[in-house]
Amino acid sequence: MVELTASAPFDAGMERTIGAVTLRAAETGPVTALMPYAGQERALSAALERAHGLEFPAAGRMTSAGQARCLWSGLDQAMLIGVEPDPALADHAAVVAQSDGWAALTLTGDAVADVLARLVPVDLRPAAFEQGASIRSELGHMMVILARTGPQQVTVMGFRSMAGTLLHELENAMTALAARPKG
């Protein structure tokens, strides 16, 4: 049996600061798609509560408990992140391992909303995109999940196969914003 060495989507500890925004590679841990069967959303939420201490999130929201986070990611779909899913969840939902399918970054700083405004057609200023919000939209032409993970921080999750493009798009936007005269 060949032992394969796992590699991360971005260099470990990658960190770039351009202007008022710092971009960092984010470690997600296990990522699992939870897709409740018809009429099973409440049962799934109860099972999640028992196993991991958090509820199935409402549309556009994120729930968290300790290391575990559950990010709403579409119609009848959320991503459980940071913990291995309890086998009991499979009674109520399609449970699909996607750990190696996603690449996550965090953007931190005063100008995060200004950078993302160049790429995402949704208002991501803190007043409109408050703590606990998790949405699905596009960044450039890529599908992404965006979550507010701090007062000045947004986590961006994109498809791992497009990790290079995601980084390129964000660095371009950060560079272009930083080049604008102040005031």
Partner: peptide, 11 residues
């Protein structure tokens, strides 16, 4: 109904 008001490029 789920995401709120969104730009038509998403549709």
């Amino acid at each position: 109904p789920l995401c709120g008001s969104r730009d038509h490029r998403e549709f």
